[in-house]
């Protein structure tokens, strides 16, 4: 927090507290991938707390191949004009100029995303340089803390985007949670070695060991296709759910979008979930991940 700079002086924008503040406001909700203003309107009317503007949902990126880049700013602006909820957009891992452009457009959150083709296989964006908050994917605690160290104000599981298969998101959420629990069992003298093994900044390892949680919200993403998937991730400790291809690659997007929103509200109530899940039509077809070649896995992008 920038307490010193605030008391007795003018307003401060772009601080870490302000960035995390928006992540806090998005908690207990659903963030939906949309590719045009019409889809953005369907998402907003279903009760989404934010939309992610992108040209192709992950399932199409997967199917069509080629290089996936930041979306056309004109298309992002159209979506920003169509809805009143926050609009997020993706830049490639390490592509800080795409991030600069997204900040200049005024998007509310930048997702430095493995769904796009990485621009830098060594370095992620130094996110502290930006006023706009960043969300990044993670598979385990070490990756989560590295991204926070670079300035991410929100995390999400990587999952395996565009598959409609929740198995990787579950793995990543459990792995992060187990890493946090493990830190709580260690003595102070054990934390340095743990930081080394995690490849994580020591001060953040100490912080998590002391508080028993991450310093920023952790959302679920990658493979959510049904209301039950969304509720599963919430019960596993996700603080909000991203749904990428799962809504607009399903048979009937609008009712499914509404159902996922209701499922996040009622995530602990199986009877409500039964009603919410009924009669939604076909979910997205989905993909088995175990049989997928390594080079097709998006979660392995970034480190």
């Amino acid at each position: 927090m920038n307490e010193a700079s605030v008391n007795g002086s003018g307003p401060v924008s772009g601080s870490f507290a302000v960035k995390i503040g928006l992540a806090e406001m998005l908690r207990n909700g659903v963030i939906m991938d949309v590719t045009n203003p019409e889809q953005a309107v369907i998402a907003e009317q279903a009760g989404a707390v934010a939309v992610m503007a992108l040209e192709r949902v992950p399932a199409d990126i997967r199917a069509q191949g080629g290089i996936a880049r930041m979306s056309d700013p004109a298309m992002i602006r159209e979506i920003m004009g169509a809805v009143s909820i926050p609009v997020m957009a993706k830049c490639r891992i390490g592509h800080f100029v795409e991030a600069q452009i997204l900040e200049a457009i005024g998007v509310d959150f930048i997702d430095e995303s493995e769904v796009l083709t990485p621009a830098d296989e060594t370095n992620h964006v130094w996110k502290h340089d930006f006023k706009a908050p960043f969300v990044c994917g993670c598979r385990d605690l070490g990756e989560a803390l590295r991204r926070i160290g670079e300035g991410a104000a929100m995390l999400r599981t990587k999952g395996e985007a565009g598959t409609g298969n929740i198995v990787e998101a579950v793995r990543h959420m459990r792995t992060v949670q187990n890493g946090i629990k493990r830190l709580g069992t260690l003595g102070r003298e054990e934390l340095m070695r743990e930081a080394r093994d995690l490849g994580a900044p020591f001060d953040l390892v100490q912080w998590v060991a002391e508080h028993g949680k991450l310093p920023v919200p952790n959302f679920a993403a990658g493979g959510v296709a049904t209301p039950a998937d969304a509720a599963l991730m919430m019960q596993l400790g996700a603080e909000t759910v991203f749904v990428g291809s799962g809504i607009f690659k399903s048979e009937d997007p609008a009712p499914r979008a509404r159902a996922v929103v209701q499922a996040v509200l009622n995530f602990k109530d199986p009877k409500a979930l039964a009603d919410i899940s009924a009669g939604l039509g076909e979910p997205m077809r989905g993909k088995d991940i175990a049989s997928m070649p390594q080079e097709e896995r998006m979660a392995a992008r970034g480190w």
């Binding site: 927090m1 920038n2 605030v6 008391n7 007795g8 002086s9 003018g10 307003p11 401060v12 924008s13 772009g14 601080s15 507290a17 302000v18 503040g21 928006l22 920003m80 009143s84 926050p86 900040e103 005024g106 998007v107 509310d108 959150f109 006023k131 706009a132 908050p133």
Partner: peptide
């Protein structure tokens, strides 16, 4: 007036 201070870039802290 909803969101009248602007988008997230205009979010701020003040005493």
């Amino acid at each position: 007036d909803r969101n009248a201070y602007g988008r997230q870039n205009e979010s701020f802290e003040a005493g």
